[in-house]
């Protein structure tokens, strides 16, 4: 079955959604992501949606869920690369996605993740520098 690859980049995971999402694919992505977060103990997830040409309420909800799941597993999530037309449509649709952090591109997303992780490390120092 077709799956969306999840790459490990340093202490972060990178999910790049390149295909038009259908519902089953979205469900399996959530399974894969949570499993990989636990297995790699990654500190953050970058979800690149620059190739997505639409985000409906289902995919929007999936993005929200992925961010919340990452949060529950002690990681930060950032969605990057949303296209202008997609952003306008989501707002008109009535979804705010306020729970999802965003950045313009992968570079800026990476920098944001780093600063978020550094901030949370300084707050609880003990479980961060264990390597």
């Amino acid at each position: 079955m077709e799956r969306i690859p999840i790459l490990k980049v340093g202490e972060f995971l990178l999910v790049s959604i390149q295909v038009d999402m259908h519902d089953r694919l979205a469900m399996s992505l959530q399974d894969d992501l949570t499993a990989k977060l636990v297995a790699t103990r990654a500190k953050g997830v970058l979800i690149d949606i620059s190739s997505l040409d639409m985000v409906d309420s289902f995919i929007g909800r999936m993005l929200g869920h992925m961010a919340a799941m990452a949060g529950a597993l002690g990681a930060k999530a950032v969605v990057v690369g949303m296209q202008p037309a997609v952003a306008i449509t989501i707002v008109e649709l009535g979804m705010a996605l306020t729970e999802v952090r965003t950045a313009l591109n992968v570079d800026k997303g990476m920098a944001l993740l780093q600063s978020l992780v550094a901030k949370s490390c300084s707050m609880d120092n003990h479980d961060c520098h264990e390597k």
């Binding site: 040409d53 639409m54 409906d56 309420s57 037309a85 449509t89 008109e92 649709l93």
Partner: peptide, 13 residues
């Protein structure tokens, strides 16, 4: 592009 995206999203819903 915006019109296409809006219609496509509504269709999907």
């Amino acid at each position: 592009l915006v019109e296409q995206t809006k219609m496509m999203t509504a269709t999907s819903e």
